[in-house]
C-alpha cells in the first residue's frame, strides 16, 4: 500500500462523475479494453450458445450435413410426446426432491454440533466431511462403480460379513436401487458444501446473543428453538435454493456411475440430452437442443423463484 489516501480532494475542479471527466474518451476506450476479454469469451461461449440453442431447436440437424433444415416447432411436439423425456424429467425432479431436504437438514444438525466451541476436534471433522467436495466428481463416480460392485466391492463385502445380504446387492445394476444409490452418493459428495454454508450462517450469530440467553437461564434446547432457528431462517431459504440449483446439475456423477442405466432408470435430463446429441449413432442436435431449451427455461423459472424468495428472506431479516 504505497499510495496513501489523501485527506482532501484536491483534484475536484468541479462536480464530476467518473468517466465523464476530462479525458473521458480515453478512459472510455480503456473501459472497453478492460471489458473486451469478457465480451469476447463470454459472448462467444455463453451468450451466443444460449441464443443459438433456440435457433437450433427449430431445425432438424445431425451435425454432419452442411446446414440444418428448418422444421418449426416439430421438435418440441416430439419432445413433449416422448415418454422417455417425461421419464427423465420425473427422474430429475425425484433427484431434487429426495436429495435436497436430506442435504439441507442433516448438514444443519451437524453444523450446529460443529459450531459449538466446546466440541473437540471440530476442525478435523469439518475437513473430513468437506473432503469429498474437492474431489473430481467424474472420478468419484467411477470409483463408486467399484465400491458398490455386487461381487467384490467393499460395501457388499461388509454387508456379507455382517450377514445382512449374503448374496450381495447389485446397487447400481438394478433399476430399483440405482437411483437411490446415486442420490446417496450425491448427498455424500456435496454434504460438505452445505455444511460450510450453514457454518457460515451460524457464524453470523454473535456469541453475545448466546451468552445473554444463557444468563437468562435458557438451556440448550431453548436457545436452539428461540435464538438460533429464527436467526437462521433467511439462510434456510438461500441454502435450500442453492442446493436445488446444484441438484439439477448431476451429469458428471450420473454418467460415470450408471451412464443413465440400467434401463434408463437414472437417465436424468442432462444424460437424455447427451444421448441424443453425442452418444447416438445419428446425432439429433435440433431435437436435443429443444430439450435443452425446455429444461433451460425450467431452470430459469427455478432461478426466478430463487431471486424472489431471497428478496422475501431479506425483507424478513430486515424486519427482525
Amino acid at each position: 500500500m504505497t499510495v496513501a489516501v489523501r485527506p482532501a480532494r484536491v483534484s475536484a475542479a468541479g462536480p464530476r462523475r467518473p468517466g465523464r471527466a476530462p479525458g473521458a474518451a480515453r478512459s472510455t476506450a480503456y473501459v472497453w479494453l478492460f471489458l473486451a476479454p469478457t465480451v469476447l469469451l463470454y459472448g462467444a461461449f455463453t451468450v451466443y450458445p444460449i441464443v443459438s440453442s433456440y435457433l437450433y431447436s427449430l431445425t432438424d440437424w445431425n451435425g454432419f450435413d452442411a446446414s440444418p433444415s428448418f422444421i418449426g416447432l416439430a421438435n418440441y411436439r416430439e419432445v413433449l410426446a416422448d415418454p422417455m423425456f417425461w421419464n427423465s424429467f420425473r427422474l430429475t425432479l425425484t433427484f431434487m426432491v429426495l436429495a435436497v431436504p436430506v442435504q439441507v437438514l442433516a448438514t444443519l444438525l451437524i453444523a450446529i454440533v460443529l459450531n459449538s466451541p466446546r466440541m473437540p476436534l471440530r476442525k478435523l471433522f469439518r475437513t473430513a466431511l468437506f473432503l469429498p467436495v474437492v474431489t473430481t466428481t467424474a472420478i468419484v463416480g467411477v470409483v463408486m462403480q467399484f465400491v458398490f460392485d455386487p461381487a467384490s466391492g467393499p460395501v457388499n463385502l461388509a454387508l456379507r460379513e455382517a450377514g445382512l445380504a449374503p448374496d450381495g446387492i447389485d446397487f447400481l445394476g438394478q433399476s430399483s436401487t440405482a437411483l437411490g444409490t446415486t442420490i446417496g452418493v450425491y448427498v455424500w459428495k456435496w454434504f460438505g458444501i452445505t455444511l460450510v454454508y450453514w457454518l457460515a450462517a451460524l457464524q453470523t450469530v454473535p456469541n453475545e446473543v448466546y451468552e445473554a440467553a444463557r444468563l437468562d437461564g435458557a438451556g440448550a434446547p431453548a436457545t436452539l428453538r428461540y435464538i438460533t432457528m429464527p436467526l437462521l431462517k433467511p439462510f434456510l431459504v438461500i441454502i435450500t435454493l442453492l442446493s436445488i440449483e446444484a441438484s439439477l446439475q448431476v451429469f458428471d456423477l450420473v454418467l460415470t456411475m450408471t451412464g443413465g442405466g440400467p434401463f434408463y432408470s437414472t437417465e436424468v435430463i442432462e444424460v437424455y440430452i447427451y444421448r441424443w446429441a453425442f452418444a447416438a449413432t445419428i446425432p439429433r442436435l435440433g431435437y436435443a437442443s429443444a430439450v435443452a431449451v425446455l429444461f433451460g427455461l425450467f431452470i430459469c423459472l427455478v432461478g426466478m423463484v430463487q431471486l424472489l424468495a431471497v428478496r422475501a428472506a431479506r425483507r424478513t431479516r430486515g424486519a427482525a
Binding site: Y42, V47, P49, S52, S53, L285, F295
Partner: peptide, 24 residues
C-alpha cells in the same frame, strides 16, 4: 446492457449450451 446480460445468464448451467458451443 452489460450488467443486464451478465445477471440474466447467472442461472444458465453449462451443460445446456454445449451443442452450439461445440459447433462454434
Amino acid at each position: 446492457v452489460v450488467v443486464g446480460v451478465l445477471v440474466a445468464t447467472l442461472f444458465v448451467p453449462a451443460g445446456y449450451t454445449i451443442i452450439p458451443l461445440v459447433d462454434l
